[in-house]
Amino acid sequence: MIEQKTNSSRPAVDEDSSDPRTPAEVREATTPPPVNTYKPAPRTMVRAVIKHIVMVAAALVMIYPLLWMVVSSLRPTDVIFREPGLFLTTFEWSNYEQGWNALSHPFSHFLLNSAIVVLGCILGNLISCSLAAYAFARLDFRFKKIMFGLMLMTIMLPIHVIIVPQYIMFSQIGWVNTFLPIIIPKLLATDAFFIFLMVQFIRGIPKDMDEAARIDGAGHARIFFQIILPLMVPALATTAIFTFIWTWSDFFTSLIYLTDPEMYTVPVALRAFIDATGESNWGALFAMSIVTLLPVFLAFLIGQKFLVKGIATTGIK
């Protein structure tokens, strides 16, 4: 009985038929009506095609310089000056070798420096900003409104107004040519943008759970670590990826605090490379540029979802 039932509910019709209906009738009765009968009218089709052509053209214009740079990093410098195409006849890997060893340290040294700085900044931002965000989003305390307002204002404050005294301060305690002037401020939640992002996120988490935990006698530390933090992983991921991309590319702070080639991060190393070769060796310069862009590109590929979500929720909502 059951067997039969499943049989008849199948769209394909069996020959062996205890069913009195004709195959056509069965088909009609069992096949779901076509979901999508919508066929675009010719005009809409034309419009869609035009739209795609415009988009592809725009995308190509946007991305072509990047592709060309990748290809050119495998070309001898004289070819770079006369070949706008993307076709490669030979692979000039020596560009990468030359670039890698052009400065007093191999490029891996600068990559490592940048990795240390980036890691420190990510940890700093994750810890300090999530603590601050929890307080702003969930707790009720004195001066909250003023502090929140100040926090929002620091998002918009130009860094230049603090960089001079900050430099004087850090140089007096002997922090120039260390990574501390870059990392310590992050540990002190100075990247207010991320606090804001996390506040937004925590506000979206239903309060029921922390209230239940509170009734059960959990303190704020426990609620924060065991309830809020696990739930705000997407916001933490967004913060980590943005911090990675921005710190990796940050030139200004490194330029000011890291003057010893031993301590160079990737952006200042690349700049030193331009100074050293005087742009005579575009092939190698492009090669190292690609090397510095690659981690950002990978972070973008992996974290794109979080980036789009993060930027959208801080922007609107």
Binding site: I127, S128, L131, A132, Y134, A135, F136, R138, L139, D140, F141, R142, K144, M147, L150, M151, T154, L157, V161, I162, V164, P165, Q166, M169, P185, L187, L188, A189, T190, I195, G219, H220, F224
Partner: peptide, 23 residues
């Protein structure tokens, strides 16, 4: 949550005065 609030905000508060407002 007066006390807890200010504890959670301690790193930020130090940063605000030492890294931003002071400079």
């Amino acid at each position: 949550d007066n006390k807890a609030g200010h504890i959670f905000l301690l790193p930020w508060t130090i940063g605000l005065f030492a890294i931003t407002l002071g400079p």
